[in-house]
Amino acid sequence: MSSEWPLWEIFIRGQHGLNHRHVGSLHAPDAEMAVKHARDVYTRRNEGVSIWVVPSAAITASSPSEKGPLFEPSNSKVYRPPTFFDIPEEVGKM
């Protein structure tokens, strides 16, 4: 059996209140050690308050060839952005 440690994707919350963001990957034998390694590798400059680790193999990605069908429909939904609505000036800032 291969002794190569599996690959993990690392997500870090930079400050309280922000989303976890993907910062990179690393190798570790299991999740617990991946967290420790992530602390040592990706927060050397005090970059984080919380860490998520996910086995890279567990990620299901959208297929690049479906990029059109997946994302283009929402481009045409002009009614979602707030600029779609005309609010009379008298009403004030909204």
């Binding site: 291969s2 190569e4 990957s25 050397r44």
Partner: peptide, 23 residues
């Protein structure tokens, strides 16, 4: 020197996305 190890690590990970392992 530790940063350099880190840079190596980031780059190996970038290469790994192309279907080659670090080992």
């Amino acid at each position: 020197v530790q940063d350099e190890a880190g840079h190596g690590l980031y780059l190996y990970c970038a290469a790994e996305t192309l279907g080659v392992s670090r080992d």
